[in-house]
Amino acid sequence: MKKVSPPGLEKQAIKAKARQGFFIGLPSIAYLLIFFIIPLGYVIAYSFATRSRSGRTELRDWNVDAYIRLGEDVVQAVAWRSLWIAVLTTVICLLLAYPLAFFISTRRPVIRNLLLVGIMIPFWSNFLIRTYAWRVLLSSDGLFTKVVEGLGLGDGRILFTRPAVILGLVYGYLPFMVLPLYASIDRINWSLVEGARDLYASGWKAFRRIVWPLSRPGVVAGSILVFVPSFGAYVTPAILGGNKESLMGSYIVDQFMDARNGPLGSSLSVLVLGVMLIGTMIYFRQGGRNL
């Protein structure tokens, strides 16, 4: 005797399953809708809107003028400068983080956990406060300046210069590089390296042919996690760079606050958003979901 479910029951079950998470997720869905999706809609709408003579953004006469202005030399200069600083920050983070992640993943479990906690300790205090702390260290009679000059490495007064901005960005985003790198290096089966050594590979060759390619998901993930926020950074350039050089973040703020040009500020925001979106897509494509 076969038991047959009445028709339609399966469909109902599937529907119920689809609804399952909805009510639990409702508060966060509402939160995201009110504070993220709607403002985002505003930004996109603003970018096609018209700026009145008084500087008000008026939602009429839809046009793409704000996007055409992205081609202007001033805007281009800001974009390329931001891009360059973000690339430099990413490369420095990668060079610093890779050996560190490798070191951590080859330690005993106890030491490994201690080091990982150490990497995360900075997150316990506010990013703004930590950036201000750098301002103290970098001031003309600060510790950093004194050490650099004491070692005879030349003028240590880098506050309000581009090196200070990059220093601050590297400091702030290094953990975002170390953690995914650690995760992917730690996952590599060490016997693969032994296998390579057994097949006549030198230590360096074993690294080049085995460890590096297998840790690439971590390299891609970490690079994007550093590059994306560096590109749009606002706080660090403002505090450590003294806003001497316009970068994307501060330039957008300027458009809204000083120039009162909502449409341009919005089209710039959409540009940054686009860069971040592409980065995030690459991240998820390259095994980011394994992290």
Binding site: E194, G195, D198, R209
Partner: peptide, 16 residues
Amino acid sequence: PNKRPVNTVFQNYALF
């Protein structure tokens, strides 16, 4: 190991 005239078949194969 890379300077020794031996090769190993590992327990878990260690295929790349």
